[in-house]
Design a protein around this nucleic acid. Sequence first.
DNA 1: AGAAACCCTGGAAACGGTTCCAATCGGGGG
DNA 2: CCCCCGATTGGAACCGTTTCCAGGGTTTCT
Lengths: 337, 337
Amino acid sequence: MTTIRDVAEHAGVGLATVSRVLNQSPLVSEGTRQRVLDVIRDLNYTPHAAARRLSLGKTLIIKVFVPFFPRPSVTERLAGAVSLLSQSEYDLVIHNIDTPERRATCFEHLPTSKEVDGVLIISLSPLDHEAENLVHADIPIVLIDADHPALARLHRVTTDDVEGGRRAAEYLIQLGHRRIGFIGDTINNPFHFVSSRDRFLGYQQALAAARLPVRSEYYAEGEHGRREARDLARPMLSLAERPTAIVAASDTQAVGVLEAARELGLRVPENLSVIGYDDIEVADMMGLTTMRQMLYEFGQRGVELLLETLDSPDRPPVHEIMPTELVVRHTTAPPGI
Amino acid sequence: MTTIRDVAEHAGVGLATVSRVLNQSPLVSEGTRQRVLDVIRDLNYTPHAAARRLSLGKTLIIKVFVPFFPRPSVTERLAGAVSLLSQSEYDLVIHNIDTPERRATCFEHLPTSKEVDGVLIISLSPLDHEAENLVHADIPIVLIDADHPALARLHRVTTDDVEGGRRAAEYLIQLGHRRIGFIGDTINNPFHFVSSRDRFLGYQQALAAARLPVRSEYYAEGEHGRREARDLARPMLSLAERPTAIVAASDTQAVGVLEAARELGLRVPENLSVIGYDDIEVADMMGLTTMRQMLYEFGQRGVELLLETLDSPDRPPVHEIMPTELVVRHTTAPPGI
DNA sequence: AGAAACCCTGGAAACGGTTCCAATCGGGGG
DNA sequence: CCCCCGATTGGAACCGTTTCCAGGGTTTCT
């Protein structure tokens, strides 16, 4: 294996000089720089990553925690992160969280500066005692689509799910719907996801503002997933006085609702309006009306903040709220008669 | 920062002993092991990754090249890889390839053993001169859904796209279709993807075997994508003698075909049969008949082979062919009258 | 009782970079 | 002509692990 020592020897210079050339230090004369570069090319030398990291005292690694990779909504955010990181000198390593145990372990044993330089947490909000850990971590942490009141000292990129849920419901109300259902994730889920709960909160606000009752038979929750949503929607749509519109906590679940409607012979949007959340690719494919989140930009922005912090650690924390946007397609209409 | 030295000091043992405890060497008495473990816990010690890697002479990193992350077909394979790797001591770093330049750079400057321990290449087949590089790499490389005749010495997990294309077409022929179109990627694309070409080859074989003519107006190619496929399908479906069925080179493109059909007022499957390829999630959502590849298992198997090779480098190379399976849903039927 | 075998342990030398610090060189100013 | 300064350069220490090797203690066998 060729080392920096070999290069130094062949070029007739010292170790330090080679290192300086490698790190484009200005403290090298043009002549020697060229000579060294030639030798590097001739010997086909590449630096030893681990040695460099050790000496530098930096790992050049950023770890990202994502739940349920490859669920489209998180994958899209991840893609934004990957794209921005590929232009930096940092490597991105993925840590998929698909069990409550793994989730707990991550928050319990946060990586230290001896393992990674920074952490990106996507869509996983910490509990109270976990937030404590985050605050005391010895490396920068950026939360994407996750938050906690105790984390004012951390960078966060979030979205207002309450507002999103409210606007989704408001749109349906504005179309003339009066019986509006909601189908979402279990509020007490082992992963402590809260977006579905918040969107439901917004939904309730919208109904209250319009003086509409929040009827418990119009609310159903279950595990995240298309089939689960379909199974939840079926009985709701079979009610004597069934809802004329349904807000789903995600596009995936909205698709489940569409399936249930089809099974029951309900036409969308004539007999039933459905609105989803996220605007993942299938929403476009299926013509689903939905609340768009700028998923890709979410990820990009998070990485941007992380890189800035790595550069200048004492920068004041930023809490950025990404906008949502109502995208009207073909699954919503005024209620049929 | 607490180091192994601090631990040794507090425990009143030597460096080597602490290291042995950390690496569960059997050469430590139970008494000292416990003492060391206690000190490790008390000091909240964690090993320094870079130092360990340097000393070990292993990077403990595996790099994966994927094109067009987060395209569902590659993301699903990636997910399989991630899942298996999470149980190992290796970190997975993603390298997204979304331009021909990046693609070339990757094959030209393959990572060396000083950067990573192994490479996973997903869905990117090398050209002749690039294959040369791969063979001479100084680290194990596993190709997933990619291949080249010169690479018999490498592990590969592939699929028979020719057979898949043939079986898709055969199914339509068997349903009674005689005018069958094909919509796929440009054969000469800057990324040198060949799966679309191979599937088209299989399609041609099936038609030939049934003594059906391969008509050029029933073939259209373009950039990969739903909209592109829709634009390609529109004129084909507007022909005086339009095809009664279409084989799409991917599910994404099949969805584009469905959109074109809808625009033109053609009912699926009554007026037009459509068959896709991959069986990504949307295929199920949209009831698309398709050729299923076991994408997730693809990725898992590739990592499995890579890990085995890292363990015992002289194991003979394995070329594994993953099966495909026809999944009949609701977009195919005998031709209407 | 002495030697051999075994188990456990600690010191020190790697691993391959980066960087502080001292040294050398050449030139300009006094 | 000497001194000082800036521009380059090289040596050596250091980063925190792993592991080879030697050594000490105990046991077992003769």
